[in-house]
Every structure is written in C-alpha cells, then in structure tokens.
Design a protein around this nucleic acid. Structure first.
Length: 299
DNA sequence: AAACCGTGGGC
DNA sequence: TGCCCAAGGTT
C-alpha cells in the first residue's frame, strides 16, 4: 500500500510513544535521573522537590548525597544537623520526616528503600506521588506517577480543561492509559509526561507551538477554553504564621548554641503571634527548649 | 475538604 | 508591585 502523502497526525494510541521520542531530546539532564542513582538518592530528591523548584533543590541534594549517601548515614545524625542542612528549601518538616524515614528504613527495611508502593507510602512524608516516583524512578517499576505537572497535562490533553483543578483519583488511571506497555518504556514515559508539564504544558503560558502532542490535545481541539471552575486562591504568605515560623527558625539555624528568648523577640514584633509560632515549632519537633529556658534546634 | 506548612523567582 | 507558581503531605 502507498504511504499517506499527508503528515500523519498523532493518533490517540501512540501519545505515549510520541512523548517518549520527544523526551529523548527535550528532557533535562537532571542529576537524580542518572543510571547510577540509587533509590535512596531518588527518594531524597523527590522529597526535596515537593513544592520546591528544581534549581533550588539541586545544590542541596548534591550536598546531602555526599554527606548521607545511605539511609543509615542520615539516620545517625541529629535533627538539628538535618534542619541546618535543609537550609532554606522551605517546609522544614520535610527534613525531619526524611530523617524519620531514614530511621524507619534502618529499623524495618534493613537500611534499604523498599520497591513496594504500599511500604513506601507507610513512611513519614511519603504520599501517593512520592511513593510511586520512588518505585518508578528509583526501582524501575512501571508505575503511573501523578504530580502537579501530570495533572495539568491530563486535564488538557485528555479532558480538554484549561486547569487541573483538585486532584482526582482517576488521574492515575488516565496517565496509565497513555503509558506504553513495555515496562522500561513505561518508566521513561512517566519521566516524559512530567517533563512535558514542566517545560511545555506549563501553568501560565503553555508553549503549545512546541508541544509534540498538540494535534491530539483535547484542550486545543476545543479551542483552548478558559478555566471554568472557581479560581483557586493562592496562599498568602506575608504576615502569616508560616513567615513567622520561618523567621524564628532562621535565627535558630544561624545560632551556634541555644538562643535566649529576647533574641527571638527580634524575629517578629507581635508577641502573641510569635509565641504561638514558637509553640507550634516545639510541637512539630523543629525546636526544643533547654533546661535553662533557651531555645535551639533539636539535638 | 479545605487549610496549613516556607521560600524565592518570574512576569 | 503583587500575584502566581513550584516533582505534596498531613490533618
């Protein structure tokens, strides 16, 4: 039979293959993607990447891998050391949970990172996304992986919506339906979809002209309709407890030893809010009080 | 289910 | 400038 003279559009069946091909040249060469990266290194990267941009994670991740190349190594150090090494990645409870995860891996998994999704989800700070990412990228399992990028790609490509909206359990099945059957390709496909969302199918100004699947994108075919649902409101930061907690922790991170309360007073003027935030940091285990009443990162 | 948990860069 | 957003998880 003669081949078709017109360029063949991307059919629904090979979206996965097209994304795979695209990612061969377009995907970033991130350090936690290398062939020599073990599951622990992947786990650490994934936790750091929770709500934190790649560029800020990279240098810290390299430092952590050099210092604590195994769960046992991290499990052996104090929370204070881990919190300091976390630096200003944000959401420092992640650092505590990462250390707790390291302890759990030593105690319950012989110091190794399990490949089982349920076992991973049982670890502190490891949820639906991170568990599958570790199983997939760390252990080579063909797991569907759904993060904010993938939710956005699925919303547009599959459902023709402009925005992802709230997470849906069906997202997992939606990506799985696009994935190649062959396990090794399915793993690379999971990387590819995330890359598409991170580089092309971005939130604010999608670069549709550069999209490898624009011809089959339900959102484009529908004429790129505007978002329909209620605009999700963005979290305030200035003046919130999050900012105050950050200020307080900043003082404690910088200090050599225990800090007397008056020094913390300088971090935030409002005494009521300051006190509330210090209490919450104590409850979270990010701060502890010495017998003489001073404050420090937990030894 | 919705609110909370840091921080900084881009537009 | 102020808003939007970033490889989520927990409560």
């Amino acid at each position: 039979m003669d081949s078709s003279p017109s360029p063949s559009p991307v059919s629904g069946d090979d979206v996965g293959e097209v994304l795979l091909d695209w990612s061969e040249t377009a995907a970033r060469d991130l350090p936690w993607r290398g062939p020599d990266v073990d599951p622990w290194a992947v786990l650490v990267s994934e936790v750091m990447l929770q709500q934190t941009p790649v560029a800020r994670v990279e240098p810290v991740w390299r430092e952590w891998m050099a210092r604590w190349p195994s769960p046992a190594a991290l499990a052996a150090v104090s929370p204070a050391e881990v919190i300091r090494a976390w630096g200003k990645l944000g959401y420092p409870r992640r650092a505590l949970r990462l250390r707790e995860t390291a302890v759990a891996l030593v105690e319950r998994h012989q110091g190794a990172v399990p490949a089982d999704v349920a076992a991973l989800e049982a670890l502190p700070g490891i949820g639906t996304y991170t568990a599958r990412a570790v199983a997939c990228f760390g252990h080579g399992q063909p797991q569907p992986v759904v993060d904010t990028n993938v939710r956005r790609v699925v919303a547009r490509l599959v459902h023709g919506r402009a925005e992802a909206g709230t997470a849906r359990t069906s997202d997992l099945a939606d990506v799985a339906a696009l994935a190649p059957a062959e396990p090794e390709r399915a793993v690379r496909f999971s990387v590819a979809v995330m890359e598409l969302g991170a580089l092309v199918c971005v939130a604010r100004t999608p670069r549709c002209a550069a999209c490898p699947v624009r011809e089959v994108c339900a959102w484009r075919l529908a004429g790129c309709p505007a978002p329909d649902g209620p605009a999700r409101r963005v979290q305030k930061f200035a003046g919130t407890d999050r900012q105050v907690r950050g200020r307080l922790l900043d003082v404690l991170r910088a200090a050599e030893g225990p800090v007397p309360a008056p020094l913390l007073d300088e971090a935030w003027a409002d005494a009521v809010q300051r006190s509330r935030c210090l209490d919450s940091l104590l409850v979270d285990g990010l701060v502890e009080q010495t017998p003489d009443g001073r404050f420090r990162l937990p030894a």
